[in-house]
């Protein structure tokens, strides 16, 4: 009950203004991704695209999925998952970059 009250209470922190702002930011970042895909950045293309994707997902996770306002344990779960993903990326690139 207490938990429900807390989350219910915290949900009110996200107003429509913020939600629309985040939505506009996501659209803008998508436009940047598309624009950058047309510019030749060589080997940096992928990293820039991944960086923008990371910003977008953090916005979605924190605001739209309410993780920012939830209990710390969910943040721990998310950090563990995110860390695993980063390690997987690094290990996959240890093949891709050094392939002869």
């Amino acid at each position: 009950m207490e938990y429900e009250k807390q989350t219910e209470h915290k949900h009110h922190h996200v107003g429509y203004g913020t939600l629309i702002l985040i939505w506009v930011a996501l659209i803008a970042l998508t436009s940047i991704t598309v624009t950058i895909a047309g510019i030749s950045l060589g080997s940096y293309t992928l990293f820039v695209a991944l960086f923008i994707a990371a910003i977008k997902s953090s916005l979605v996770i924190n605001i739209f999925m309410h993780i920012k306002f939830d209990e710390p344990i969910f943040k721990v779960f998310l950090i563990v998952s995110g860390f695993t993903l980063i390690v997987i990326f690094i290990l996959t690139f240890s093949d891709f970059i050094y392939r002869g």
């Binding site: 997987i88 093949d95 050094y98 392939r99």
Partner: peptide, 17 residues
């Protein structure tokens, strides 16, 4: 979670990897 490419040693994986 971090050992998957040992299935791929002869697939053309980089030596470093």
């Amino acid at each position: 979670y971090l050992v998957w490419a040992h299935h791929m040693f002869v697939s053309g994986l980089s030596d470093t990897s």
